[in-house]
Structure formats: structure tokens, C-alpha cells
Design a protein around this nucleic acid. Structure first.
Lengths: 163, 163
DNA sequence: TCATAGTGTGTATATTTATTCCTATTTTCT
DNA sequence: AGAAAATAGGAATAAATATACACACTATGA
């Protein structure tokens, strides 16, 4: 049915935008959009969308969208939503460190452009990068701490700047 | 308490290893390890560990560990189930280690799919991978031994299983 | 056409999960 | 040491979530 497709999109939109802590909290926003369903339907929808309830850092729970899957998966997001996956983060997903290496995970397709920016920055802390489709490997200069690297990278990755 | 620290580790281990669909399913494995607690405690533990219950692609729910991150970043979860398997024995050629790096050689064209599975495994030992056509570079987390890495990788590369 | 299969959803309910209330134990501070 | 605060965890229960069942509607095919 047409209604369902629309509803799933709206649910994704809401989950992506606001902090929703339980399914009934989702009912009102949907009603505001003219969508009237029951909690049971939401439970089924969230399952289908692979939306998970995760403990956040403030001791509460919030629903979050799944990380996008590559070709293997059966989840297909609409192109429209796909284009702005996480507004403002420019594809950035996570950063982690191991000695003189940094690994940045991005949404599929974003690794190249982010790595390009980092490479062109000519930061002395960063020797170079290697990028795949959704992963960037960054090699740090000798003696650079993770904090220094983080600061240097934040110049090229807006999502790393502390709010 | 010392008990709790231990328990949290064991819980992580179990969640990482088996498919647990609800909290009571976790009680028995813990009991087998000599840990006797109630569901209420598990609820609190899972919250603290930021372990989420995620819908997988087979229509069931699975608890999964959060993706390890460095400092910044938003938390996203990999939909469960692409976790294990696939990857026919074909493709794998060799594995070698150098400090916090692993290089896996594959037949031409296989590197990407094997790396894909490794990436989606969310192993805490593995920060990420970069794949070419027949070579995969894997970055290990700090403090991970080659043995631990081997074990972690064997979950995704059947050829590594000793059996 | 009518049967059959498939999808979508509400209601009611079962199941699962989080929390409230309480007690015990440990840690911190004076 | 003793008081006060923090931490841990069980029992009971509230809250949240998933599902069994029923029914409506759509598409398909003989």
C-alpha cells in the first residue's frame, strides 16, 4: 500500500531528527503529519526498518537508524533520504585510533572526498591517507599524539569539531 | 564490585559470540560461567554497555555491541546478521601480521567481499579495513595480539578456522 | 468469475525490558 | 572509627514492545 511506504519514510525522518525514546512517543509526531496508526504497527515498522533502541550517553534510550548496508543487504533507502543521511556530518560516521594510524568510517562513497580534503591540507601531523569506499586509513607522523591528530583532522572533518 | 566488572566482560563476550535474542536467553550462558544474576541486572548491564537490540535480516532480534569509537562521532549500528558467514573458502590465500597491521592476500577480485564481511562484523579487535583487488589491509586496535586478531578474523574467513 | 495467496493493520495479549523500592556492601570524608 | 555517599543488585511491578488472531483489501490465476 502507498500509505505504508510514505509512513516508513516519515518514521525514518522523525527518528533521524528528534530523540525518540519509545514507540508511543512516535505516535504524536506521526499524527501531526496526518498519519494515524497504533503502537503495534510501529513495532512492525521499526522492525522492518531495522531501527534499534540504543542506550545513549545520558542514561536514556533513543531509537537510531541502522548503518547503511552495502549491496549484500536487503534494506533499500529512498534516494531522497539517502542524499542527506546525517545532516551536517558530511558522511562521517566514526573515528578510531591505533598507534600511528587513524581509521575513519564514513557512509558509502564519502571516504574519497574526505580523504582528498585531508590530503590537500598538508598538515605536518598527517603523512598521508588511503581511502576505500567507506573507510579512510590515515598515517600519522612520528610522535603525534591522538589528541593532536584529532585536532588536525577536525580542520577537514567538520563533524569532529566540538560543539 | 569486582564481580560486576567480570560480568560485563563476559556479557560482551557472549553477545559478541552468540546470537542472543532477549535478556533471559543470556541468563543460562552466564550461569554456565558461574554468574548468577536476575534479568533486572542484565537490563542495567546492557544499558551500561550500550548494547542494543537490533532487528536482523531474518526477522528476528539480536543484541549487538556498539561500534567502538574514539572520541567523537554519532553512534550507528550495523544491522545484525551480516555478522557471520558467507565468504566461501575460495579467495583466501595467505595472512601475515606486522604489529597492528594484518595483510590478507586473496585471489584477484576477492578482497572486497572478504573485507566487507570483516567490516560488518564489528569486532572490537578490528578498527577497519582497506581493500584493493587482491589484498586487504586490516588495522587492529591497540593491544590486540596476533592471536586474538587471528581468532577474530576466523569468524569471517572460514579458511582460518582450525577445526 | 471465484478461489487463493499475499499484504497491511487493529485489538488484545504475551513477552520482554526498565524501573521503583529496598537492603547490603563498599568507598569517601571528617 | 563512624557518618554519609555511592554502588550493586534482588523482588516486584510498571512500562514498553512484539506477536497471535482476525479481518479487510489487492493482486493473480484458472
Amino acid at each position: 500500500m502507498k500509505l505504508k511506504k510514505k509512513r516508513l519514510e516519515v518514521i525514518r525522518e522523525i527518528i533521524n531528527t528528534r530523540k525518540i525514546g519509545c514507540q508511543v512517543e512516535l505516535l504524536q509526531p506521526l499524527l501531526d503529519m496526518g498519519i494515524d496508526v497504533t503502537q503495534a504497527t510501529l513495532s512492525r515498522d521499526l522492525k522492518q526498518l531495522k531501527i534499534a533502541k540504543v542506550p545513549d550517553s545520558t542514561g536514556r534510550y533513543i531509537y537510531t537508524l541502522p548503518k547503511e548496508e552495502g549491496m549484500g543487504g536487503n534494506v533499500r533507502y529512498t534516494p531522497a533520504l539517502d542524499r542527506h543521511p546525517i545532516v551536517g556530518l558530511g558522511g562521517f560516521l566514526s573515528i578510531s585510533f591505533s598507534y600511528n594510524l587513524v581509521v575513519i568510517k564514513t557512509s558509502p562513497g564519502y571516504a574519497g572526498s574526505i580523504a582528498y580534503d585531508i590530503d590537500n591540507g598538508n598538515s605536518k601531523e598527517i603523512l598521508g591517507t588511503v581511502a576505500g569506499d567507506d573507510t579512510i586509513l590515515i598515517i600519522l607522523a612520528e610522535g603525534i599524539s591522538h589528541e593532536e591528530a584529532y585536532t588536525a583532522l577536525s580542520k577537514y572533518v567538520p563533524a569532529l569539531r566540538t560543539q
